[in-house]
Design a protein around this nucleic acid. Structure first.
Lengths: 139, 139
DNA sequence: CCGGATCCAATTAGATACTG
DNA sequence: CAGTATCTAATTGGATCCGG
């Protein structure tokens, strides 16, 4: 599973590091998790609230369009990865509170960098899309 | 599309900005694109090669596991968004070369920040996963 | 109120085949 | 070799119900 690429890369090939790119690579898995539709949103919301905890229903309101199921599921993934904590208020009806761990909080900055890039360049990209569309219309 | 959240947020609610979170928001679309399985990988590969162009087959080798179809598709998306250029060598058999635009190149830094975070914390996260699993095993 | 389970619809990705 | 279309298999996400 190491250098066995078979082709042993022609001269023009850039550094095929082989670590980030193997499908089994844990970093890849992590990037998939991060790239998940709701993960970045929840991290942002929880980071802004930090160190305040947020209830399930609150989170739901903060992420318009998220279903009951997906929220539950995403939160569990985050919990599993040690990014958020979960606290159950022992009452009737029970309320459950979520917050970022230190690790989860540390993820917000990197994601913010990407968010900023997106906000900064979205206009350019939309223009590119329109231009691309026009280019495609006229055969 | 501005402040109309309906619920007018109870006091404990954090800043529901309402811009990033509406499903129709272009920044959201962009984040989805960025979070795509192959986008970040291709941007990295092309950024490392920059300003050298890479051929289709080369890209394929650099992204193990990507199918012919997905690579084609992802490259077209990137092209559509003005992140990569495409140059066709008029020969038989034809070769096609891809490279990042300035915009595409500028995306590499933000993504690198996330990659770095992932590489730096993957060990901790894997430990968390194992611990979480153990926690789950014993009822 | 929270969250897991089940069922079902919708989206997505791979394999194949065909065009330039 | 590069790219697209088509068909099909697998995955995902939403609605609903039930249990804690």
């Amino acid at each position: 599973m190491t250098g066995q690429d078979g082709t042993s890369a022609s001269p023009g090939e850039p550094g095929v590091t082989g670590d980030l790119f193997s499908p089994a690579c844990p970093t890849r898995q992590l990037l998939d998790r991060i790239g998940d539709k709701w993960t970045s949103m929840l991290v942002k919301v929880l980071a802004e609230a930090h160190p305040e905890e947020l209830g399930f229903a609150q989170l739901r309101r903060c992420a318009p369009g998220v279903s009951h199921k997906m929220l539950s599921q995403t939160l569990q993934s985050l919990r599993r990865d040690g990014l958020v904590t979960r606290r159950v208020e022992p009452a009737v009806p029970p309320r459950v509170y979520y917050a970022l761990t230190d690790l989860g909080l540390s993820l917000d900055a990197p994601l913010a960098v990407v968010r900023t890039w997106a906000e900064r360049h979205i206009a350019t990209i939309e223009r590119a899309r329109i231009a691309f569309g026009k280019e495609h219309d006229r055969g």
